[in-house]
């Protein structure tokens, strides 16, 4: 816990300084933090040993909610749009959660994949509403009541996202340390024993599922606003796969790792795509295998040796 806080604080300072020292990286970092929120959602489920190959669904739900609200020209502020996106994602997840939490392992991964792919197909199909494969443009909303130009919006959106990330990281850290969060670890190690103790594993998982979708929706909303564009590929299974990938990269089950992982991922992806167009997927694939084989605790835990992660 103390290690993570220290590490988190150092990371926070490093990240917070970026707009001053490397201004062009501001948007890239904001995107990385937005994706990091969705990855944190996957991390919560990983605590229970469950992976979802369909969290793109909730990511897309948050992003499209923001896009629809902006297109409706209600003049909503960023600080209202983001919670709205998270809320819609959470509602969908809580409803679908009644089915999803009955499944474990591969079947849990697969039913999530099936539902997100249905959503993906619908986003493509319902052309007149969702813009189909073209997606929707998201005009820049106000931020805290201010109408900002590109440069200052990018600057302040970064700090807004960073603030959200810090609050979310602390809250999720608390949640994972609480009995509800410890219950997730029990599901991973031995669910039957947990049930013999009279604890409903379905309920614990259901709550985690809602929390994780809320995070994904929040992340999707951030991305929609920062990039100004949403597209059906947000719900595509490969996108969900990326979230899982980054979670493993950062250290499965680790809060700070989710964000560290997504920053590293975003940088590698940007540079790999620019300088090794034919090999960037290979670079990512090989590094994923290397981490699973040689550093199963992920990037953040590598420097601390064998210490078991706990937030």
């Amino acid at each position: 816990m103390r290690f993570d806080l220290l590490f988190g604080a150092i990371a926070f300072c490093a990240v917070a300084g970026v707009p001053f020292f490397i201004p062009w990286a501001t948007v890239m970092l904001t995107i990385a933090l937005g994706v990091g929120l969705a990855v944190l959602g996957v991390v919560v489920l990983l605590r229970a040993g469950q992976i979802s190959f369909g969290h793109g669904l909730y990511y897309a739900a948050g992003a499209y909610t923001v896009a629809f609200l902006v297109q409706a020209r209600l003049g909503l502020d960023t600080l209202l749009l983001l919670p709205a996106g998270a809320l819609v994602a959470t509602v969908i997840a809580v409803a679908f959660g009644f089915f999803a939490v009955r499944y474990r392992d591969i079947f849990f991964a697969m039913i999530n994949l099936a539902v997100s792919m249905v959503a993906f197909s619908l986003l493509e199909k319902l052309y007149s509403i969702t813009g189909g494969g073209d997606g929707l443009n998201v005009a820049r909303p106000t931020l805290a009541g201010l109408k900002l130009g590109r440069v200052s919006f990018e600057f302040w959106m970064f700090y807004t996202t960073l603030a959200i990330v810090v609050v979310v990281a602390l809250v999720v850290g608390r949640y994972l340390a609480s009995p509800l969060g410890k219950g997730l670890e029990a599901i991973k190690s031995n669910e039957t024993r947990l049930e013999y103790l009279g604890v409903s594993s379905a309920r614990i998982l259901h709550i985690a599922y809602g929390v994780s979708a809320c995070l994904a929706g929040l992340g999707g909303g951030v991305i929609a606003i920062v990039t100004g564009h949403v597209a059906p590929e947000f719900a595509y299974w490969v996108r969900s796969g990326e979230f899982v990938f980054i979670a493993i990269l950062g250290g499965a089950g680790n809060v700070v790792g989710a964000f560290a992982g997504s920053i590293v991922y975003e940088i590698v992806r940007n540079y790999a795509a620019a300088f090794a167009a034919d090999y960037w997927q290979t670079i990512l694939g090989v590094s994923l295998i290397a981490i699973i084989m040689f550093a199963p605790q992920g990037l953040t835990q590598m420097r601390f040796g064998k210490k078991r992660g706990g937030a």
Binding site: V27, I31, T227, N270
Partner: peptide
């Protein structure tokens, strides 16, 4: 080919 959001980042860069 890398998707709209990735393309937008690259375009900016």
């Amino acid at each position: 080919g890398a998707g709209a959001n990735q393309l937008m980042s690259e375009y900016r860069r």
